[in-house]
Design a protein around this nucleic acid. Structure first.
Length: 597
RNA sequence: GGAUCCAUAGCUCAGCUGGAUAGAGCAACAGCCUUCUAAGCUGUAGGUCGAAGGUUCGAAUCCUUCUGGAUUCACCA
């Protein structure tokens, strides 16, 4: 925060003048004062005692007096156990408030022509099964981070890599061919991704049967897994695909298109989108050629069996396979190609991958390999590693049917929102369209806020039985506060009250109002920090704080019925800015706010 | 086994680069709607911050060890 820096300089000045010695920079600690104490900024004096050679209280007292004397914004100070709490005067905060009120988008930095370009990859689905709760977390984090970076003046390209080729797809294809009987999403009346996912599960079931049979016949588990007829057929299908076999390619295209149609519906429901989508089937060959080129330049190793490796032992890692002995590519191959083409396309200054923490090692290696291959831009690669969403019983497992399907979850949230709204007797005098829209906004608000308020890097638990709350620290609570403010605005208009941005003089402002103004004032810094540490939860926790304070204010004070006209206008101005900041914060999380609810 | 990460109230989570008495929500209990939206507000109760050492004026936060959990080390993606 700017003011803290200014105070730091002044504190240094104070020590030089008072004690005739220049302090080390890290000994000057300015922090915001804890809520339960009086004051705005706190200087911790313990580290300074070696300069003053006096007691903490006395040191704090002397520095406090010096600062009050020199800085007009400081009206006084108090000292508690060696903490020097500086109290800024009301004018300082009120001026700040009006500056913020007048800004078009308070706290948001505009994107300029020469802004840095940041690529954000998120979602990265496989096309053999529908999206689940884990993907939802991924998508929401990616989308929110994109907006947060944009709010910091970065040119953001939202991108996706679709893993549309490989053995997993072949499994679904093969199962459909064997047991599908020409089934299509239309005939079955279900989404395409769901249908394809069913055949993936079917494959797995039949494959397991074959494995067990082989084991009974005396093979080891490993042997059985390799020799089962189904897996051999799937491999053969993949080989044909790579060879460009027309029939296989046609089937592949058909089934992938079903999946894309399904994904689009889910993305649309979630409200996320992309600026540029890459497909593994387009990039894996490029990756292959880059690796062969690296081999020629002796940056990679060729083993006797024909496989290509990167030697990372001097980096404290192992050797990493980049091409199989049969020349086919692995996951890493594709990622190298994709990164390369992305740099060619966008010349990004930074590339953020939103990918689960189970791939920490993969991204460590990806970066090193690219650097080994002399791509300097690989320095700008950053893996935003997020934690798993776990169920109370533990990890979600698709084979055990414990996966929480994305569409199902969204639908359930909408049902819940409907039920709760009906119970509360909302929606009298609403049109059907407005009811649906509002319910949708609330349902998604609840879901998104629930997932985004947790620090991305931490694993989190989701309990499907206790459906997501609508009270307390939740999306709907925040949305409700926003709706209240909009209601105030409407009522003000009805009463022909014009709410200007003009400064109102001679006000008697209460503690609570000042407190609210201070919290609003913190918003720009939150936006900045959230981008620095790539953490939407910071924004979520901030709005909650703000909204709690606003609701207390709303409860304790009359606004429209205030008889003092100036005070009424001032309170409306506070409400307006609070509403703006709530909306803007929610926007950063990718959450909409309703005009009424 | 090597590496990385995690452990805070009954449950779900905050706790900024070490700082003042560790905070919210849910659940429980007790209050507040003739007044701008009660999806709200107020209060009560709930903790040896996984354990033990160490560094420091000062540790939930840093270091070491231990316990418990997760992930990863694949010619899987």
């Amino acid at each position: 925060m700017k003011y803290a820096l200014f105070l730091k300089e002044k504190a240094i000045e104070a020590i030089i003048n008072l004690y005739n010695i220049k302090p080390e920079l890290d000994k000057i600690q300015i922090q915001s004062t804890r809520k339960d104490f009086k004051g705005d900024f706190t200087l911790v004096t313990f580290p300074l005692l070696k300069y003053s050679k006096k007691s903490a209280e006395q040191t704090a007292d002397e520095i406090g007096n010096y600062l009050v004397d020199k800085i007009i914004d400081i009206q006084g100070f108090n000292v508690i156990k060696g903490f020097l709490n500086l109290e800024l005067n009301e004018t300082y905060w009120v001026n700040n408030f009006y500056e913020a009120l007048c800004e078009e988008r308070f706290g948001i930095t505009k994107v300029e022509k020469d802004s840095k370009t940041v690529l954000v990859e998120y979602s990265s689905p496989n096309t053999n099964k529908p999206l689940h709760l884990g993907h939802i977390r991924n998508n929401l984090i990616g989308f929110s981070i994109s907006r947060i970076l944009e709010a910091n003046g970065k040119k953001v390209i939202k991108t996706n890599i679709v893993n549309d080729r490989g053995i997993h797809i072949s499994k679904s294809m093969l199962a459909w061919e064997k047991w599908g009987n020409g089934q299509t999403p239309d005939l079955a009346g279900i989404k395409g991704d769901l249908l394809v996912g069913k055949y993936y599960v079917k494959f797995d079931r039949e494959y397991k049967k074959e494995i067990n049979e082989l084991i009974e016949k005396g093979q080891t588990k490993e042997e059985a897994e390799k020799n089962a007829p189904l897996i051999l057929e799937a491999r053969e299908m993949l080989r044909k695909w790579e060879a460009g076999d027309e029939k296989v390619i046609d089937l592949w295209k058909k089934m992938n298109n079903w999946v894309y149609e399904g994904f689009d519906i889910t993305y649309d429901k979630l409200g996320v989108d992309f600026d540029k989508i890459y497909y593994e089937s387009d990039t894996y060959k490029l990756g292959k050629s880059i690796i062969l080129d690296g081999l020629k330049k002796k940056k990679l190793i060729l083993k006797d069996d024909g496989s290509v490796w990167a030697n990372l032992t001097d980096k404290g890692l192992d050797e990493k396979l980049l091409l199989r002995s049969d020349g086919t590519s692995v996951y890493m191959t594709q990622d190298i190609g994709t990164a390369y083409i992305r740099y060619k396309d966008f010349k990004f200054d930074e590339h953020i991958y939103v990918v689960g923490n189970e791939q920490d090692y993969h991204f460590k290696v990806l970066k090193i390999v690219l650097l080994e291959l002399s791509y300097k831009w690989a320095h700008s690669i950053h893996h935003l590693s997020y934690g798993m969403v776990e169920l109370p019983e533990g990890k979600m497992k698709s084979r055990e049917g414990t996966v929480v399907d994305a569409d199902d979850l969204i639908d359930e949230m909408i049902d819940t929102a409907k039920t709760i709204s009906a119970e509360l007797g909302k929606f009298e005098g609403y049109s059907d369209e407005e009811i649906n829209e509002t319910i949708n906004t609330i349902a998604l608000g609840a879901l998104k806020y629930f997932l985004l308020k947790v620090d991305p890097k931490k694993n989190m638990t989701f309990n499907p039985k206790e459906s997501i709350d609508f009270n307390g620290n939740t999306g709907p609570f925040i949305q409700y506060t926003y709706a209240r403010i909009q209601s105030l605005k409407r009522k003000a208009e009805e009463n022909k009250i014009v709410i200007s941005n003009d400064k109102i003089e001679n006000l008697e402002i209460s503690e609570k109002e000042i407190q609210l103004i201070k919290t609003l004032n913190a918003f720009p810094n939150i936006v900045k920090e959230a981008a620095e540490i790539l953490n939407p939860a910071l924004v979520a926790n901030y709005i909650y704080e703000l909204v709690k304070e606003f609701n207390q204010f709303y409860h304790d004070f009359v606004i429209l019925k205030e008889e003092n006209e100036n005070l009424k206008l001032f309170r409306l101005q506070i409400s307006i800015l609070s509403g703006k900041v709530i909306k803007e914060s929610m926007y950063l999380l990718g959450i909409n706010v309703p005009e009424r609810m």
